[in-house]
């Protein structure tokens, strides 16, 4: 049988979940971690999808919306459980396990909170192997499963159940999340453990537990490999950030130009749509979605978010290889460059 994620393990999981996580709001991350600590009790059982009874109903849990909003408007505390209960009512069946949609920072912890609140195991794995911005961008969807029915619970007691074709979930979800105040907890992708075993990116929770152990190398958090694209200095940030008196209208998408500090001294352009989706070195594509591209601060070793990038900052640009399923044609269509609006 599986292992138990207790308070100690929780610390490792949270550390591991931040190694390559982008868009982390410190405030949201800390409150989620405090919240998880407060509910974890004696621990949450971690099982593989294959270990669970194949007929067990598994529900995916994810935070949707803005972590800035979560940090500002605190959760009431019952959101994960409320979302799952709503889905259970719709399905007429109890969930026997929860699984993460992705494992970046808060999103690694919210499923854990749900499992603790519901008293069910957490499946060792997730639906991306990395983070994508859309609920539909999962290996679950690639495996033919629908995110709907989906239950969304908000911090002010709101609850919305979406029942719609899978490809319309995001479209309907987004305005709902905004009307909630910017964030919500979703329970979605209801499926059996048997189905989950087929579509999950397996073992990623264990992986983060190992990666979060003191002294573990950064690469331990990348199940399919990671490489350094370049080390350099941010030369310019175009589009999103203005500095000084001559302020450019910030807008997304944005673009970050990094000059390689040594070696070839290439000009590396990072094209970002909330996250970095394309890296060009001297105009040649060298990395792109579905692989994950992130900037790691040379000084602090933390991931630098796109909206925190500033000229002069020294960064290491790393590319985390996505799960193989993302490199299939269907994976590319769902999570590749075109999914981010770049017509390549």
């Amino acid at each position: 049988m599986g292992r138990v994620i207790d308070r100690d393990e929780l610390g490792r999981l949270s550390a591991g979940s931040r190694v390559f996580a982008i868009g982390t709001e410190e405030s949201a991350y800390r409150l989620t971690l405090d919240w998880a600590h407060s509910v974890i009790g004696s621990g949450v059982e971690l099982v593989t999808a294959g270990e669970a009874d194949p007929g067990t109903l598994c529900v995916s849990i994810t935070l949707v919306g803005s972590t800035t909003a979560l940090g500002e408007q605190l959760p009431a505390g019952d959101e994960p459980a409320r979302a799952v209960r709503a889905l259970e009512r719709r399905l007429g069946e109890r969930a026997g396990a929860v699984v993460a949609l992705n494992l970046a920072a808060e999103n690694a912890l919210v499923p854990l909170i749900a499992a603790a609140q519901l008293g069910v195991p957490l499946i060792d794995g997730d639906g991306t192997g990395r983070v994508f911005p859309l609920v539909e961008q999962t290996t679950y969807a690639l495996g033919g499963l629908s995110p709907a029915p989906l239950a969304l619970a908000g911090g002010s007691g709101e609850l919305v159940l979406l029942e719609t074709p899978g490809d319309r979930v995001e479209e309907l979800l987004r305005p709902v999340v905004l009307s909630f105040g910017g964030w919500g907890v979703a329970a979605c992708y209801p499926m059996t453990a048997g189905e989950l075993a087929r579509v999950v990116v397996p073992g990623t929770v264990s992986l983060l537990l190992r990666a979060g152990a003191p002294g573990a190398p950064r690469s331990a958090a990348a199940p399919y490999g990671v490489r350094t694209l370049c080390r350099g200095r941010i030369l310019a940030v175009e589009g999103s950030t203005g500095h000084g008196a001559d302020l450019a209208l910030p807008s997304l998408p944005s673009s970050i130009v990094v000059q390689e500090s040594a070696g070839l001294r290439r000009l590396v352009r990072l094209e970002a749509h909330n996250e970095i989706v394309l890296a060009l070195a001297d105009g040649a594509p060298v990395a792109m979605a579905p692989d994950q591209i992130c900037m790691i601060s040379t000084e602090g070793g933390m991931v630098v978010d796109v909206d925190k990038a500033e000229p002069g900052l020294e960064v290491e640009v790393m590319v985390v290889r996505a799960a193989p399923v993302w490199h299939t044609d269907r994976g590319q269509a769902l999570g590749g460059l075109r999914a981010f609006g770049l017509p390549l």
Binding site: P253, S255, R269, E271, L278, L280, G283, L342
Partner: peptide, 9 residues
């Protein structure tokens, strides 16, 4: 956008 022009270059 910059990326398109750079790739074109």
């Amino acid at each position: 956008g910059g990326w398109a022009v750079e790739m074109a270059m």
